[in-house]
């Protein structure tokens, strides 16, 4: 039995296979509408996250399966002091697969050790969110046609942004990837990610504060939100939250086939005037998220 706790749990081949299945689902949706008949997905959301939960639930429903679960810890036995291991063993009696979000980092790993059914990490604190990374990879593959030979700009909160760290980790396994790190000094990519991922894999990278400096070279521009909940000092958040605002003007020098991505939700970092630009891919990205989750559910349930 396989779980997905960390994107590194999947080999490049397994990721490529998931992407191929997701693409096939997009093109032949009817072929998959009864693949999970009679199967149940439990969505255990110990902290709220509407879009990720809905994406998982929609994915299971489109496969013909059913969903059950809770959307916040206060409506579960956790509020009575139950451990993650106990909760997971009970839910394993009722569901065939579990997607779990938890505010504490490492909780899905603890669940996977005790679980009798596959566990999918749907986000644990600021740690991992592997299905977001799979979503990003499917988006890049579908929009660019490849996962190698790419120059990727990552912009915004590179310090706390788990999606950025996971995406860098995943992309480091492909050939000829160049990374442009765009952030204010206070939100730069942590040194350990540079050393243990970029430098260890000989990935070429540059750092800049100027979003326009390398704009003309980018194949992908991955924007991120400055997250209020990561700051202890509100003044720092207010000073940094609008540091980057991508608008049509800044995109003038960008390539015609640039792919603009964002894990959503956005606040101000992408102006709404960019939404109509054909290079804006962030809503398509949310849609791809459902299809890669469908492919993942099939893989973990070993449904052919």
């Amino acid at each position: 039995m396989k779980h997905l706790i960390d994107i590194k749990d999947l080999s490049v081949k397994e990721i490529d296979d998931l992407i191929e299945v997701a693409k096939d689902i997009i093109n032949h949706r009817d072929n998959y509408s009864h693949k999970c008949d009679g199967k149940k997905l439990a969505t255990l959301f110990f902290e709220p996250s509407t879009r990720t939960r809905l994406s998982f639930e929609a994915a299971m429903m489109e496969l013909g399966g059913n969903v059950l679960g809770f959307s916040e810890a206060s409506s579960s036995s956790v509020s009575k002091g139950e451990t993650v291991a106990d909760t997971i063993q009970v839910v394993g009696c009722y569901a065939d697969i579990i997607a779990m979000r938890h505010p504490k980092e490492g909780a899905p790993y603890v669940a996977s050790v005790k679980s009798t059914v596959p566990i999918i990490n749907a986000g644990d604190g600021g740690h991992n969110h592997p299905t977001q990374t799979l979503t990003d990879l499917l988006t890049i593959k579908c929009e660019k046609g490849r996962l190698d030979n790419l120059t990727i700009g990552l912009c915004g909160d590179l310090k706390f942004g788990r999606t950025v760290h996971s995406l860098i980790t995943a992309m480091a396994r492909y050939n000829n990837i160049k990374i442009v790190l765009i952030s204010p000094d206070e939100l730069k990519l942590p040194e350990y990610v540079k050393k243990e991922v970029l430098e260890k894999n000989n990935i070429e990278y540059v750092e800049t504060k100027d979003i326009e400096e390398y704009m003309s070279e980018l194949d992908i521009l991955y924007m991120t939100r400055v997250q209020k909940e990561r700051f202890f000092n509100e003044a720092d958040y207010i000073r940094l939250k609008d540091y980057y605002i991508l608008n049509k003007d800044k995109l003038k020098v960008a390539k015609n086939d640039l792919c603009i991505m964002h894990p959503l939700p956005r606040v101000n970092e992408i102006s709404t005037d960019v939404d109509d630009d054909p290079r804006a891919c962030y809503f398509k990205q949310a849609n791809y998220g459902k299809y890669i989750r469908m492919a993942l559910i099939l893989k973990l349930l070993e449904v052919k």
């Binding site: 451990t83 993650v84 938890h102 505010p103 504490k104 980092e105 490492g106 909780a107 790993y109 603890v110 644990d124 604190g125 600021g126 740690h127």
Partner: peptide, 13 residues
């Protein structure tokens, strides 16, 4: 010492 780690609330781990 990470206050967000699961070990901060589940002491038996």
């Amino acid at each position: 010492t990470n206050p967000r780690c699961i070990t901060s609330i589940e002491k038996d781990l």
